[in-house]
Design a protein around this nucleic acid. Structure first.
Lengths: 343, 343
DNA sequence: CTGAAAGCGCTTACAG
DNA sequence: CTGAAAGCGCTTACAG
């Protein structure tokens, strides 16, 4: 096990001061008026030896860890794992590493996670907050730590935020379905008071009102195992035989819902049109392919990271907040297009 | 911004020695013969103040960061993001945090990532290695860092390893298809020399030989965008109209393949049976549902973490290697079961 | 440009 | 049980 090189070793071997080496390594050679020749010599030596400064020591002394935390509902979800992938690329380019954590929408677990991450002094936070952690988020802000929320926000807590225009997502979906001659448009959503869900519901309600249709909503609990959701969806479909289109408020609700539609023996789109919130591999491949209200994943990741980085590098003051509302993309596929000619 | 409490502050406020506080906090009170009364008092104070020791300082002094690195091909893939989720739960229980990185199967990028992670002194590595990074893995081992490879290994580099019995996966898939009266069974795989791919191919070849069938293999480049893979698969299907079953060597190959089958106007399973390697949400939901050679995700994660933890906590010597070969589960669904009665 | 020095917040022998 | 002290490997004023 070859002993790791330290800045001390380098200073000794090269017969220069430790501080000089440190300045050169941190690109402050010019500023400190260190000769080009010496700078060259140190840089070359470091290069040859493959020296990497110990980040821990650096962090302890600067107070910066160059780590950011990605706290999402569940890392294995399609939406979150793709955001994670895009964020990683951006972090990498800027010298940051990402620690991921899944809240599973549990406030207690989230509190503990934030506490653990604070002990590790991560520099910034990207969070999809569960309900009930207003205090902890506020504490982060009070302590001067950059926090960007995404996907949903906490009303009353002023933070940076990146989210979809959920309202227009469902609104336009309804509008499209109405023009495709649907008369009975249902919404399957979560039993949740989170902002993104409320916005999706509002968009649906407002659009229905505009077209003088009656709303029909199924709310399923977030904690449901998939089979239960399938059962509930099936029951819902059976109880309301006049449904001719369903909007699902999340992609996993759509997955269960499609299963239920199959089990009910109904055909998509001839018996029932389907639009899902959040795109997913399944929807592209499925036969017929499933229309979706897509969130532009890399655009969201880009905005998230930009806002965070601007604060980490003090280009923007902590108090100055950005709210970025990204427009969804209604991707029309086989599960709805046929409805146009249905009747 | 309330100043963070340090162990020094605590020692001062309680009029005890810093070392005493440190011992108590690290559960060495008994060992150091510190009175229960004092122990209580310190613990209570710490609890009240919500003190969390600075992990950076701790790490610098102990040399342990309690961080592990998860280096996978791509964090957004179904397989890897689910492994990530299961690993996270285990890490959490044991006080570890996980940094994820995507290699994108690029050795150059992977080298850089490992170098960066070494500078951060992560305690252990869980890696799906791309080809050509034998030297770096060997260096980690030489320097006494625990490394567990998974999904594929590097021949000639002795490491801990957790992987699927890929050979039996495809072997049994072929065997099932043969019994279901398939006569022309194709394999769509990657143009890759990685062990997991070779094993899958071997299982296919051996089983075909046993049943005196001729192999028919399409190899697509890993870097292909999805559309290209769809096109190649479509061409392959058209060029070989006698194909009556296809095994896809990865789930994303299957996604493209199913699309190609649709575009070719063929019916699953009546025209063509389908089995995919690695399960996926799509396969459960798809109509007909798609048979899959499933990797038990949480079992794999459990084994991976156990091996790593045993080494991190010195329960197992570094030199003693574990190789865990997990049996796949052939999940039969609609895409194949019908073939039994086809002819 | 250099060198000695303090400090980041812990851990851990060591002498009492 | 306590206290003083060294050390982990950096950064950064400070005096020359």
């Amino acid at each position: 096990m070859s002993k790791k090189l330290s800045i001390n070793d380098i200073a000794n071997e090269l017969h220069v001061a430790k501080s000089t080496v440190s300045f050169i390594l941190n690109g402050k050679a010019k500023e400190k008026r260190i000769s080009e020749e010496l700078t060259e010599r140190v840089l070359k030596f470091v290069e040859e030896k493959g020296y990497r400064p110990n980040q821990l020591a650096k962090s302890l002394s600067t107070g910066k860890t160059k780590m950011i935390c990605l706290l999402v509902e569940k890392i294995s979800d399609y939406f979150f794992s793709h955001i994670a992938f895009h964020l990683e690329a951006l972090a990498y380019k800027n010298g940051y590493k990402i620690i991921y954590c899944s809240t599973e929408n549990d406030p207690e677990k989230t509190r503990e996670l934030i506490s653990l991450l604070r002990a590790r002094h991560v520099d910034g936070y990207i969070i999809t907050p569960p309900p009930g952690i207003e205090t902890e988020i506020q504490a982060l802000l009070t302590d001067g730590l950059p926090v960007v929320l995404f996907d949903r926000y906490l009303p009353g807590i002023p933070t940076d935020y990146v989210g979809l225009d959920n309202y227009h997502g469902t609104y336009e979906a309804v509008e499209f379905l109405v023009k495709a001659l649907s008369k009975r448009i249902a919404l399957v959503t979560l039993n949740s008071g989170q902002t993104q869900m409320l916005e999706r519901r509002d968009g649906y309600m407002t659009a229905l009102k505009k077209y003088k249709l009656k709303p029909l909503i199924l709310k399923v609990p977030f904690e449901n195992p998939m089979e239960t959701t399938v059962k509930q969806s099936l029951q819902f479909i059976k109880d309301n035989p006049d449904i001719d289109a369903i909007i699902f408020a999340t992609n996993y609700l759509a997955l269960s819902g499609i299963k239920a539609i199959n089990e009910a023996g109904l055909q998509i789109p001839s018996d029932i049109g389907v639009i899902a919130f959040d795109d997913h591999d399944v929807f592209r491949i499925y036969n017929p392919s499933i229309s979706a209200i897509a969130q532009p994943l890399d655009e969201m990741a880009k905005q998230l990271f930009k806002i965070l980085l601007d604060k980490l590098e003090n280009r923007v003051r902590l108090k100055d907040l950005s709210k970025i509302i990204i427009q969804p993309e209604l991707i029309l596929r086989g599960s709805t297009t046929d409805t146009l000619v249905r009747k």
